[in-house]
Design a protein around this nucleic acid. Structure first.
Lengths: 241, 241
DNA sequence: GCGAATTTGTGCGTATGTATT
DNA sequence: TAATACATACGCACAAATTCG
């Protein structure tokens, strides 16, 4: 890596962090595998071990890697375990996040509407992939959702099964690191169509979850509007720090 | 501070962090004031500047202090600005958190019920302070809340005006550092009494916000159940990271 | 079961960069 | 401009956890 590049404003440890993040995204070190140890990385990149440590600190706080003393550093699998439902605030009785099983209802590729362009920060003419899905938990239908994917953020997107994957898995396949999401929670009367699909009475009160998921670069990748009927032993839990 | 104490498992920088946190809580450095610089702290405590830096990193990430290069390190005022509404997910149109103006309706000191003991992790016989309040934003009534304060966590609590202060201000006065909160969001039909107080029709759809606020030690300090009628230009926004 | 090797974590010290006053 | 204070970068030594022979 050599001495600090005068033309890049970024501190060296940030450059290292970004380089490693890029490698993680590229699949050089697949999910679950081990990274080279810190000294080796420092040698290879020509920086001090302290600089590598700061870079790894950053990657760890972004949940891209996990480190364990005496063991080493491994790559987090975003598509399995708790990471897969990271952006769901629906939890079961034990407090674990619920993703649920998805059933794709319909899917269509289209030019983004004005609203979609606004929410996903897209340009005119950009394409989106709209998916309508149902979600079940323990065979109970609890959610109906319309998800809109910004296709330009997913180069080489496989449109065939994109709608059947949750955003965490899809992002990992495309080397995209998800960073955060913000979800607007409101109460809304359910539409006749949704009521039928969720098998509930019209006028039943539902949670409307309007969520945008952002990638590490700060740009939005998915906009989803879901109607959720909280079943017994399910709750919406917002953590504030 | 000297060499590492063999009987305390904590790393030195954690010990320094806790010592400084304690000083902050004690009011030695009041909100808004400047801390001694890093080298001075290191000299005074007899540790390296790197250790002080790690301690300050931790305090900063816990939002107890803010550091600015070239300027120094100052103490965050938890009772004003955004910090005061840190545990409210209700936001206005510009995305700023809304605390609102509080109007105390009633207040009573009592022995904790079983539910209160459970939510606040109290022992039998512990006292709580129950406050019922209304909240307004721009003269619009939007929230009715029942707050339960664990009195044992607030030594020397001034019962007279405890109910009129928001939890962030109250905690700061008692040298308690708030760390996190978790809020259960559900839909519930409003009670007749709440409906009257919020000046809305019965059967209007409301958000029920059931929130517990935790201090830095991990113990709960306040349990609050609120019914919120989201007015125009207000929204509930949950951030996920 | 024990000890050696490996790997991350902690702690120290120093030099230099950069933003603020 | 000069002084101050935090930020970055380097390097070394040792501690603690894990793994493996």
């Amino acid at each position: 890596m050599g001495p600090r590049d005068k033309f890049s404003i970024e501190p060296l440890y940030v450059q290292v962090r970004n380089l490693l993040a890029q490698r993680l995204a590229s699949g050089v070190w697949p999910p679950g595998s081990m990274l080279p140890n810190e000294m080796e990385l420092a040698r290879e990149l020509g920086v001090s071990s302290g600089t590598v440590r700061k870079a790894l600190d950053s990657l760890e706080s972004d949940r891209l890697i996990v480190r364990r003393q005496g063991r080493g550093t491994s790559v987090v699998d975003q598509a399995s375990g708790d990471a897969a439902a990271r952006f769901s605030n629906i939890r079961n009785g034990e407090g674990r996040r619920i993703g649920g099983d998805m059933e794709l209802i319909s899917q269509i590729k289209a030019v983004a509407t004005a609203t979609e362009r606004q929410r996903l920060q897209l340009a005119a003419g950009d394409f989106v992939l709209r998916s309508t899905r149902l979600r079940r938990y323990r065979n109970q239908l609890f959610m109906h959702e319309d998800a809109v994917l910004a296709m330009s953020r997913f180069p080489g997107l496989d449109e065939k099964n994109a709608g059947t994957l949750r955003i965490s898995a899809l992002a990992q396949r495309h080397g995209i690191h998800l960073a955060k999401a913000s979800e607007r929670v409101t109460l809304e009367e359910v539409s006749a169509q949704s009521a039928e699909r969720l098998d509930i009475d019209l006028h039943t009160r539902l949670l409307k979850l309007d969520r945008v998921v952002y990638a590490a670069g700060g740009y939005p990748v998915e906009w989803r509007v879901a109607f959720c009927s909280l079943k017994e032993d399910m709750l919406y839990l917002a953590e504030m720090v």
